[in-house]
Structures are given as C-alpha cells and as structure tokens.
Amino acid sequence: MTREELLDDLAYARTLAEEGRHAPLLGGGYLLFWGVLNATAFTAHWAVLENILSAFGNAGFAVVWMAYGVIAGLGMTALRARTRSKPGLTAIGARAERAVWTGAGIALMAIVIGSIARLIITQDPTAPNAIFGAAFAIYGAALFAAADLSDHGWLKRFAWLSAGVSLTLCLFANDNWAYLYAAIGSLLVLAWPGLVLLKREPSVIV
C-alpha cells in the first residue's frame, strides 16, 4: 500500500463522514406545521377578542384552544410517521435538531401549564399572554442551537428574528393586536424556515 492509496482512502472516508455530518435536517415539516397552526390559532384568538368570531360567545377561547390541542396531537402523530422512514434520520445534525426541539417543547409545556394554572387560580385573564414572549424566545434559542449543531448557519437569522419578535411581544403582551403580531411572527419564524427545510429534505437516499 502506498501513501497515495492511503490518502485516496482517507479522502473517500472523509467524503462519507461529511455526507452524514451535512445531512439535510428533517424538522421542516414540524416547523411548517406548528408555524401555520400557531398562526391560525392566534388569529382565531384575536378574532374572538375583537368579537369578530362570536359564534361561541365566551366559550370561543376554549373552542379555539381545544381544537388547537386536537389538531396538534393528530398532526404530530402524522409527522412522526412520515419522518420515521426518512433517510438521514440518525445523522448527527438531525439528532441534535430533535434533541433541541424536544427540550424546547418541554420548556414550552411548562410555561403553558404554569400560565393556564395562574389563569384558573387567580382568575387573571391576561395570564396566558405571558406565553408569547417566552415561546418566541425559546423558538429562537432552539433555532440557534439547531443551526449551530447541524452546520445550517442560515437558520440563525430566524433565531435572531424570533428573539426580536419575543422582545416586542414582551412589551405589548396585553394588547389585543399582539395576537395578530404573534401569528405573523409564527409564519416568519417557524413556517418560513420549515418550508425551506422541507424543500431540501431527501425523499430517497442520494
């Protein structure tokens, strides 16, 4: 075996290792789904607040968020089934992405449960408005970490955008229009990068 043969083998190994390292991320479907679902729910919530959607009276909020919960559950089940057979599922970047968003999901769940509990216990109707700012801050952190760990640096732009949306939502959380703003934010910060990732997703092994 010559030095040149060895270098050739090393180049081959490097190519294969880098294919795994730079495998496309598989979270696009999830981001798109949550972006569109959140945007729809926030818009519906705003419509109930403004009496534009008054068919259910005061129960309108409960109807919106119960429907949100059902659709979220069904959507996640469908997305998990879809992603399971994708090539590159266990690539290092895709695993990092899953771990980061699972952590973000747990953090979001804690904030949602805490805020709803506060609404029930203290009868403070503004309590759930605290979810917005925290949620977008967590989206930003998750996007930034996923971008860094998976070598998809372009995602960091959306992380900064999410941090900006979070900042303004913290400022104006109790204004009705904040729900519309959050809806637009969801489309920009979640659905948009989700769509980009979805387009890059491999349907077959390449």
């Binding site: 190994a13 294969l16 290792a17 294919e19 090539p87 690539a91 092994i205 390449v206």
Partner: peptide
Amino acid sequence: RLGVMAYLSTVSPAPFVELKAKV
C-alpha cells in the same frame, strides 16, 4: 468497511438500505 465506519461515525444507527446506497 472503511466507508461503513466513516458513515457510521456521523450516522448511527444507519438503516442497512441507507448504508448500502452510501457505500
């Protein structure tokens, strides 16, 4: 085997069909 080890170093576990296509 070099190819298998290189790919598995960044994608593990890898489905057999994916590994087959890669190497």
